[in-house]
Amino acid sequence: MSRRSAPRPTPATITLYDSPGTGSQTWVPNIWRIRFILNYKRLPYRTVWVEFPDVEATLRSISAPPSSRRADGRAVYTLPVIVDPTRNAQAPQILSNTNTIAEYLEACYPARPVFPEGSRALQTLFVHHIQDVLAKPLLPIMVPITHHQLPERTQSHFHGTSRAGTPMPVSSHPREHAWQLVKEKFDFLALVLDKNVGDGDGIVAQGHHLSYADFALCSVLLWIEQMAPHDGWARVREWNGGRWTKLRQKCQDYMDVF
């Protein structure tokens, strides 16, 4: 009589909480940054999809920490969030806030670093520039476009919460003028990256090798490509001698969605 072997335990896997669009499964720039790191470091993970109206309840149910707090002390729950049971299955790490997650993954999984030695401070400034300077003129363009491509429940959610601080999907600038403002920000960034030519390829922030700064920028490119492929990405891909298309191509191997 043959003896049936006991089933092997399922290996612990990192879980990434993401929010879906309708036309593309993943689109949020801050979440793309974490997905890039997981893929680049070759860490096994799975995705749990959570629509925006369900984010707070879902994250509270897994005891995720708030990503920030309002001035009145009220907790704010946003994605991404990761749950990592691989180091301690009985007490998995649950983290929110994109930068916190990035720092954690780099510290706990140092192989294939996204913060090469001595680069953390400059990369932090680079990413801050992308978030607070380069992306700012994109908002009046991309928020309305993105809104119309989200699930219906999510659209209704944003309409209902706009008074609490979520921007309404209404553009206050003529489209062509808004794109010109965006181009000026990309032109400036191209001039900065040109300083690496000779010592690097002029495409990536660290000269030759991809890093967190590149993933932060490429996440914005993917947001444009996925949500505005014809009006947006068709413009951006031609700017600065096709530089941004080249960056996207360099990041291509790390765009898997699990």
Rank of each mutant, 00 (worst) to 15 (best):
L193I: 03
K195S: 09
K195R: 15
N196W: 03
V197H: 12
V197T: 04
V197Y: 15
D199Y: 15
D199W: 14
G200P: 12
D201V: 15
G202W: 10
G202H: 12
G202I: 09
V204Q: 03
V204H: 01
V204S: 05
A205Q: 07
G207C: 07
H208S: 05
H208M: 06
L210R: 08
S211F: 00
S211V: 11
S211H: 01
A213N: 03
D214H: 11
D214K: 03
D214I: 08
L217I: 15
L217W: 15
C218Q: 02
S219R: 06
V220G: 11
V220Q: 09
L221S: 11
L221I: 13
L221A: 12
L222G: 05
L222P: 01
L222K: 08
W223A: 04
Q226E: 00
M227L: 14
M227A: 05
M227H: 04
M227F: 06
M227Q: 12
A228T: 05
A228W: 03
P229E: 13
P229G: 10
P229Q: 11
P229S: 12
H230I: 14
H230V: 15
H230K: 11
D231R: 12
D231C: 08
D231P: 10
D231V: 13
D231N: 13
G232F: 03
G232N: 07
A234V: 03
A234G: 13
R235G: 01
R235M: 08
R235E: 08
V236K: 01
R237L: 09
E238K: 05
E238C: 07
W239C: 08
W239V: 04
N240M: 03
G242N: 00
G242E: 01
G242I: 07
R243W: 15
R243G: 01
